[in-house]
Design a protein around this nucleic acid. Structure first.
Length: 426
RNA sequence: GUGGCUGUAGCUCACCAGGUAGAGCACCGGAUUGUGACUCCGGAGGUAGCGGGUUCAAGACCCGUCAGCCACCCCA
């Protein structure tokens, strides 16, 4: 018999993990709703050209990381490696950017990379995209929104913000020329990857980790010097907003992003707790992308959060969530079970918010109580022969010192209401 | 794509010049018959990732393969 395991880089999120994921997703939903962002749900497969044109033909993602295949009509399709391209496509296709649009989405992304901690081939991102606002108050809002989310999740202290302004495409091409000119003089001192990038994607040389390359970069022209006055002023305004918001940041003039569509503001939230894959959130402005896809020129900005990394971070900080069972129903035998069934059913209607677990599969009282205890239930409801005969039910608190007591069926709802109030206020 | 490490019960791990596997936790049952947590007793559970090779004999050695981890790379 052949056994199967999940394919490389594809990870099962097990029931033990899902409560943490759900609490993270709930927090995100609430924060985003609070800022007036609306959810958009997008396809996982798009035309290959969509990604090639927006992310950039010579980026690593497009050159070697995409899951690309021909469908049955021999059109080239790609499993989305990121969310912005598809979101912008939808915005253009449905004309959503007539007025400012603030959108978010969540879901799996696919990149064919060597897996390691914090890096999978199928991973999940929360993407947030804002269309139609060109001023830095938009950038500031996105960053402030991030901080709110970090606070909600309890990871605020573990994340630091790096920010930079990479100018518009004219600024960057001027800078690129100067950088290439400078680096070409020191070509011999660069690492092999950086030499290769000299032709393909010179800006990415800036964040090379190679010591030799770093040394060369010490004397390299600086990107901020190539920005025009208006762009610099906008960036200063953004930094001022961040200061007003009391959001700590580090301006990193070497910060560049691996996707070509970014301009002006770029930022990353990073942590030291996750090893090599330290970026939990990255984003920036992409004012040209809507027009690139045939829409009217529309300024836009956004960011993406790597959810596995965020979960890893929460785990590194020992953040846990639990939602224990409230009521566990124990029955003596099949007759008692039949007796209890409609009563429990009614209770579920009465208290839809309660997690009520009916013991299934029979067994001794002893074993049923063991299960009740392990479930974390605060209260056991017991239907035995005596209760059945007298139309009563026994309630046994499983936590704390309260004694168990037997009450009439008719009193159960009011008793539980009171009991739950006490538990809530306690 | 490159380099290194790893892969034994559900989980964390151990053993062993190479002689067909153990512990803790978890799980199931019991300790006078309607009551959990602690304790005690008992039990179940592994063809040692998979395939091949060397050997009288391999989980232990060799090769391949799959997967995980770490770094590079890349990025979220």
């Amino acid at each position: 018999m052949t056994t199967y395991q999940a394919i490389r880089g594809m990870v099962d999120i097990l029931p033990e993990q899902t409560p943490l994921w759900q609490s993270m997703e709930t927090a995100a939903l609430e924060v985003l709703s609070g800022y007036g962002y609306a959810e958009i749900r997008l396809p996982i497969i798009e035309a290959t050209g969509l990604f090639a044109r927006s992310i950039g033909e010579v980026t690593d993602i497009v050159e070697k990381e995409m899951y690309t295949f021909d469908d049955r009509s021999e059109k080239s399709m790609t499993l989305r490696p990121e969310g912005t391209a598809g979101c912008v496509r939808a915005v253009v296709q449905h004309n959503l950017a007539i007025t400012p649009q603030k959108l978010w989405y969540i879901g799996p992304m696919f990149r064919y990379e060597r897996p390691q901690k914090g890096r999978q081939r199928q991973f999940h991102q929360l993407g947030v995209e804002a269309f139609g606002v060109a001023t830095p108050d938009q950038d500031a809002e996105l960053i402030a929104l991030c901080r709110q989310l970090w606070r909600r999740l309890g990871v605020d202290d573990a994340l630091t913000l790096e920010i930079n302004c990479i100018g518009d495409s004219a600024d960057r091409s001027k800078y690129r020329e100067a950088l290439v000119a400078y680096l070409s003089e020191h070509r011999e001192s660069l690492d092999a990857d950086s030499q290769r990038r000299l032709e393909s994607n010179p800006l990415r040389i800036l964040d090379s980790k190679d010591p030799g390359t770093q040394a060369v970069l010490e004397g390299a022209p600086s990107l901020p010097d190539y920005l025009d006055a208006a762009t610099r002023e906008e960036f200063e305004t953004l930094l001022q907003y961040l200061a007003e918001l009391d959001i700590a940041y580090t301006v990193n003039p070497r910060l560049v992003r691996g996707l070509d569509y970014y301009n002006k503001t770029v930022f990353e939230w990073t942590t030291t707790l996750l090893g090599a894959q330290s970026t939990v959130c990255g984003g920036g402005r992409y004012d040209g992308l809507v027009a690139l896809f045939g829409g009217k020129q529309t300024p836009a900005a956004g960011f993406a959060v790597g959810l596995e990394r965020l979960i890893l971070l929460m785990q590194a900080l020992d953040i846990t969530v639990s939602h224990p069972v409230d009521l566990y129903v124990i029955t003596a035998d099949t007759a008692a079970l039949a007796h209890a069934l409609p009563r429990i059913d009614a209770l579920r209607g009465e208290f839809p918010e309660l997690e009520i677990v009916q013991h299934l599969g029979g067994g001794s009282f002893k074993s049923q109580f063991k299960r009740a205890d392990k479930s974390g239930a605060s209260l056991a409801l017991i239907y035995g022969e005596a209760e059945l005969a007298a139309n009563t039910v026994t309630l046994k608190p499983l936590r704390g010192e309260n004694e168990q007591r037997t009450i009439a069926d008719a009193e159960l709802v009011s008793f539980l209401s009171e009991y739950l109030n006490e538990v809530d206020s306690a």
